[in-house]
Design a protein around this nucleic acid. Structure first.
Lengths: 265, 265
DNA sequence: GAGTGGTCTAGACCACTAA
DNA sequence: TAGTGGTCTAGACCACTCA
């Protein structure tokens, strides 16, 4: 990978990662800057578990030596990984693999905050946990075949004793083999922390589609509102490394004393 | 600002920008890296109108010469400005001041997209435009005094002929002196483009609070739904340079065939 | 004091754009 | 062909953490 001397083309061995061969005849040979290749290599090590969530990864100097590039190139690769929340840098200490086991990470995906006062952690109450065959819609969103096994979870989350969120979750059965109600109950802390530690699946990013709907009888019962009351419906698909969908979540939010907080930038 | 020779402290003339003097006794002298100072200087030129939206700003080499720093330092400053959408870089051409007069910018703030098919531009119908005294709540959010003049706009936006958004907008009267219904009607294109071109106020970022509410009689009439139907309510505060609030917007979205699209990352 | 990430520089070459 | 942003390198010093 020595840039200055041995070539005038930085594609000695392309990383071959995410294909961007858009367009027609494949005569364009998939360029990518060196630092993107380094970034892909580091991401592979993260995905393979060579460095686990919460751990320290090798220093920039060490990685530069390993990959035979300059420290600046490694730095740029890590800069992007930090911007994507895959790692966290701490001056004087090193670079750490991000983890969902942090107070900070708690509200990265849960965007519902109280209208007044500071956010509190919700209490969870499991309603149902079972394994089932994926309905067509769930299978489509999780990139499974219709009828594949999925884990289904239904729960209510309360803030300060007030039931506020009714949530249904679907997970690919293959990835979450040993997931049972007991595991979910005994585990203290955020669900994504459990997924990360016990099942080796780390949620990286997600997309949400948000609508206003009327409460049906089930929602009305669990959230202590009248049938037909307006509820915010957030349908989330979460992705792990390689943009692979690994969770579907449908949350009904009671927004009488809370709101969904969003930043547009 | 010569770093290597003349000092061991990069704070010869601190930019004095955003104060981060957290904590107690003020013995810590407001550090900031050189590239942050450069970034502040460039931002000032953007804000003052030295370079107008859509225009080319000086090249990195030229700015480096002007500020007596290396090109790399200017690059890092511009990198951050590009990440914040204040400027756009184009290889081979230069760096341009961002503008709301682009198809791309259209959906940066309007996050409502159809459940099926590609997003279309909405049609606008003005319901009301007037000048009034700011209610307490509006004044608080816009950082005005209660009773200060504001411009009030009410409109309905339709997708493919279907009324979908009922929107109320409050703007500081001082900033938008000549804003009338006629100006709004005759102007083709996004409202933020008008604000930028005619009033010199560029929206940089915004925060939104989203809730589900029941349609009142007014909303029901304009959106052709029954009273009590669930609607998504998005309350937006938009900011210009220096994190100054310059717009309050309250939109009621009919989410029968559209949804609010969000990315969590 | 050793090691880490953070900043800054200077210079080289590349890819892209437009005259 | 000249000018722009994009990539890469090598080396220096700084701020921070911890033994």
């Amino acid at each position: 990978m020595n840039q200055a001397s041995s070539n005038s083309n930085n594609n000695g061995a392309p990383s071959g990662g995410s294909g961007n061969a858009a367009g027609g005849a494949g005569s364009s040979p998939t360029f990518s800057p060196l630092y993107q290749q380094i970034k892909a290599l580091i991401t592979q090590s993260l995905q393979s578990g060579e460095w686990k969530p919460g751990e320290l990864i090798p220093s920039e100097v060490e990685l530069a030596g390993r990959f035979k590039v300059s420290q600046g190139t490694v730095r740029k690769a890590i800069d992007e990984l930090a911007a994507e929340n895959l790692v966290m840098r701490r001056q004087g200490k090193g670079t750490f693999v991000s983890t969902h086991h942090e107070a900070r990470a708690h509200f990265r995906f849960l965007r519902l905050v109280p209208d007044e006062g500071v956010p509190h952690h919700p209490d969870n109450k499991l309603i149902e946990v079972k394994r089932m065959r994926a309905p067509a819609e769930v299978a489509r969103l999780l990139d499974l075949k219709s009828g594949d096994a999925v884990v289904y979870i239904k729960r209510v989350m309360s803030f300060e004793g007030e039931p506020t969120i009714l949530e249904e979750i679907w997970l690919p059965g293959l990835l979450f083999k040993g997931l049972t109600a007991e595991r979910l109950i005994e585990y203290r802390g955020p669900m994504y922390g459990l997924f990360e530690s016990e099942f080796g699946t780390r949620m990286i990013r997600a997309t949400e589609k948000i609508r206003a709907i009327a409460a049906d009888s089930t929602a009305a019962e669990f959230l202590h509102v009248k049938e037909g009351s307006p509820l915010l419906c957030a349908e989330r698909v979460s992705f792990t490394y390689g943009d692979k969908a690994v969770e579907l979540r449908r949350g009904l939010y009671l927004t009488a004393h809370h709101h969904y907080q969003n930043e547009l930038s």
